[in-house]
């Protein structure tokens, strides 16, 4: 990736994060009686949010033909494993996909 590509990529990520941050609530609601689950929801929600941002970037670059076969495989595999891990941890804490969205505002 050359410097121009990198700058374009960073601009896209910045724009994506700005769009997502506009959807964030002003306050995060964590139930004091269930701090562990609330904290897990918050952390997993953040991780999921970033994962979705990266995934959208990767799909866009794949569709645009700017990723090599090897990069598609590597990035896709990393995102797939991260998605599965987030779901596994969410299950562990009894959190649904919707719980993660509600806590952070819909990012999709």
């Amino acid at each position: 990736m050359n410097t121009t590509d990198l700058r374009i990529e960073l601009d896209e990520v910045r724009a994506e994060l700005a769009r997502v941050s506009a959807a964030l609530p002003e306050r995060i609601d964590i139930d004091p009686d269930d701090v562990e689950r609330g904290l897990a929801g918050l952390v997993l929600g953040l991780v999921e949010l970033l994962r979705q941002v990266l995934e959208r970037q990767a799909v866009r670059r794949m569709e645009g033909g700017t990723l090599s076969d090897e990069e598609i495989e590597r990035v896709g595999l990393a995102l797939m494993r991260l998605e599965r891990k987030v779901r596994e941890l969410a299950d562990h804490f009894g959190l649904t996909e919707e719980d993660l969205k509600i806590r952070l505002g819909a990012a999709s």
Binding site: E55, E73, G76, L79, M80
Partner: peptide, 10 residues
């Protein structure tokens, strides 16, 4: 595979 994953998302 990573490609299958990204193509499914696409």
């Amino acid at each position: 595979t990573g490609r299958d994953f990204l193509e499914a998302k696409s």
